[in-house]
Design a protein around this nucleic acid. Structure first.
Length: 264
DNA sequence: CAACCTGTTCGCCA
DNA sequence: ATGGCGAACAGGTT
């Protein structure tokens, strides 16, 4: 489920707990979610702190606590964050619960592709600082896009859009939406894009990111009916622009839908 | 019942 | 050393 905009939506679901004290931390320590970190340390160091702030970069989230501890959360394929009443009882897939006086902050992830990381100390964790330029910043420039396309010139453009180290936060449906708007066939080798196509790609990337953040990031509203997202999973899905039957194939290792008429 | 899935990481190969 | 690709990871849904 979660790409850039959904991540932003879920991050905000814990905003109600900002400033609140963490009275207890409950977790399922054996779960794959905690790979690479020590669950007992998370319990020990977060208990008694206060949730101070949170941020998202691409699909990665950072929650900061008093005392200098941070939690890094990644939602993987099926992760969600939500707030529940204080007497909430954690279910099978609720792998991390932060108990506050008035609520429980819950991280749920049935498929376990998500991840919980932990960091303590004055420095910023490297899994946080090593992120790619965000799409809404000046660093996501035409020159940057050109360089990325050149570096990955032999890969299909669809696969390049899915590289988190290059296009921060773009996932499968956003990549298809972007290519459809830019008029680019997903299998096109990245290095063959003409200057005008590069401009269209960057413009569509910024548009889809900004609008998805505004529409989905705020309250999980549906994008307008004119967006490809409403058609791409349907059996008889058609191009919102022409009504032409969408094509479907695995490109860049993922299911890809595109309009053969407007994407070349 | 079988196929499918909005993500990342690893090993292999060029 | 770098880039591209396919498999693996898990469990719910169709």
């Amino acid at each position: 489920m979660p790409e850039l905009a959904e991540v932003e939506y879920y991050r905000r679901q814990w905003d109600c707990g900002l400033g609140g004290k963490v009275n207890a931390v409950e977790l399922h320590p054996r779960k794959r979610i905690f790979r690479g970190s020590d669950p007992r340390e998370i319990v020990r160091r977060l208990t008694g702190t206060r949730l101070r702030a949170s941020q998202a970069r691409g699909k990665q989230m950072l929650f900061r606590f008093s005392g200098g501890s941070s939690l890094g959360l990644h939602l993987g394929m099926s992760g969600t964050l939500r707030s529940e009443p204080a007497d909430f009882a954690a279910g099978k897939h609720d792998h991390l619960v932060l108990r506050q006086a008035k609520r429980a902050l819950v991280f749920r992830d049935p498929r376990l592709f998500g991840r919980v990381r932990f960091h303590s100390g004055k420095s910023e964790p490297d899994w946080w600082t090593a992120s790619a330029p965000e799409i809404h910043t000046p660093q996501f420039s035409a020159a940057y896009v050109a360089e990325v396309l050149q570096r990955h010139r032999r890969a299909p453009i669809k696969a390049v859009l899915l590289l988190q180290s290059r296009f921060s936060g773009i996932g499968n449906w956003m990549a298809d939406e972007i290519l459809w708007r830019a008029g680019l066939a997903p299998a096109t080798a990245a290095g063959t894009l003409h200057p005008k196509q590069q401009v269209a790609l960057r413009r569509a990337t910024r548009f889809v990111s900004r609008e998805a953040m505004r529409i989905i990031g705020r309250d999980f509203s549906d994008p307008p009916k004119s967006w490809l997202i409403h058609q791409r999973w349907k059996a008889g899905g058609v191009c919102p622009r022409h009504g032409v039957q969408l094509q479907r194939a695995t490109i860049g290792g993922r299911t890809t839908a595109w309009c053969p008429k407007c994407q070349r």
